[in-house]
Amino acid sequence: MNKRSLWSGPYILWMIGFTVIPFCMILHYALTDRDGAFTFRNLLAMFEPVHLKAMTVSVEVAFFCTVICILLAYPLVIAMKRLGLFGKSYTILVLILPMWINFILRLLALQMILSNNGVLNHIFSILGLPPHELANTRTAMMIGIVYDYLPYMIVSIYNSVADIDDDIIEAARDLGAGSLTVFFRIILPLSVPGLLSGIVMVFVPSMTSFVTANIMAGGKIQLIGNIIEQEFITTMDWHLGSGLSVILMIFVLLSMAFTSRNDPDYGMSKIW
């Protein structure tokens, strides 16, 4: 027992109290029914049509949100690489600044902007464009999710791209590579670790962001997170809620295992 492991004491206690014990409780609930008898029914319930449907919608939404985040993040990151030190830290600050405000407040603001009588439609009418009924749609929900998680994607990719030696890019240019070739043959392959950790950080929370679904989609779309929330809060079927959570956890762990297998050092050095 050296001194260093002593210092991890508080964290270990924290983990036991807030991760290990709750997880055991969830597992216990998931494997029992209302009378306390052992059952697999709560786990298998994921394959009921209602739950499968919500799961499919969740995966779809999470997939498209992740793709949009990647498409938005790369151009910005490449532009950032060319900036000076001041420009870089300034951009990062602007990116992280909104995260100092609670995300529910930001979503409520976004909801007002997108609402039928909101700022966006007001601007449209000034420009003589027809109004858009974006509020309470899947599009609005995805805007909310992308808005929430984009910074994680940008920062993860940026960490990898910033590590790429400028000499390599210059060498490629010397040998006659155009911008596209440089991107696809150098920047993209070398930033895969950051990209993968970005995908994990965006895809996984997108799938379960039930608050975003409630606020932005007006209660019309059920992600798997909404169903679990409903089981716990309204229906009071904690057993079914736990069963679905366990299956969701397995799904998430599988997808993380898949991405981190290719990712030796997770590229989390520069900012976090």
């Binding site: 609402s115 039928n116 009588n117 909101g118 509020a135 309470n136 989609a217 007006g218 209660g219 019309k220």
Partner: peptide, 22 residues
């Protein structure tokens, strides 16, 4: 009815009407 419903809300129904959104 669902496709016609603008949204399902609890406490915010009144606010949406006051704001003129519904």
């Amino acid at each position: 009815q669902k496709p016609d419903v603008q949204s399902y809300l609890v406490d915010e129904v009144k606010d949406e009407l006051v704001a003129g959104n519904a």
